[in-house]
Amino acid sequence: MVTSSATAGTMNGQGATRKLAVHCKSVTKTYGAGGAKVTALRGIDLDIATGELMMLVGPSGCGKTTLISVIAGILDRDAGECTVFGVDFNTMSASAKTKFRGSNVGFVFQAFNLIPTLTAAENVAVPLMILGEGRSAAVKKGKEMLEKVGLGERYKSLPSQLSGGQQQRVAIARALVHEPRLIVCDEPTSALDHETGHVIMRLLKNVALKDDRALVIVTHDARIFGFADRIAKLDDGEVKSIQTPEEMNIGVAK
């Protein structure tokens, strides 16, 4: 049973009309076949608007990662509808999907996934280089983005020379540098201590989130629930509820 306190049209209690960033209806996904068949998503209905920070929460194996993978276009659903800014990945060729992802989706990972042999600025520049931008221009923009996340002076550092929080800030800069319209984050704070986790969430909320951009964060870190605009609780491949932090009696974090 899905309960939602808000629609994609009016979010954050601001009354502003926002565009639909992600629309999922009756999305299903199954892994394996026969006796080894596992149904990861069982008819997911979920809308996410631009300017919204949506958290997907739930126990391990509930389908959070599968759902975020489907939303990000790196995993094909079996059935149902799922569009990202009106685009249905299942109707696209593999190369078109890859291209769309490169231009429109930013990724933040639990383990940061920074390339260890590249400097911070080079890591941030990677999405731009994938899109075909020249190396020096891309690295310059990477440095500028690092300044926005407070790491301007560490642009030459290798990931191994940075703390976990700093590495995640580099990863956020990498997710933002090409101005994507959707940012998906997989457990962005679970490898970080409480204080650093809050720094990262403030960065995501205040720097990454814009009116024309949506953020989807998969987490089971209850300490950061207060940063969400809405929280979708998943269990056994279904969305059990969608609530605001206030409705869950969680203090709103800023």
Binding site: A72, T98, K99, R101, F107, F109, N113, I115, L131
Partner: peptide, 16 residues
């Protein structure tokens, strides 16, 4: 492989 996967997710095609 993890980094190739990351690049792939971020939009790098197979040819790249």
């Amino acid at each position: 492989l993890r980094y190739y996967g990351t690049l792939k997710a971020m939009g790098a095609g197979n040819m790249k």
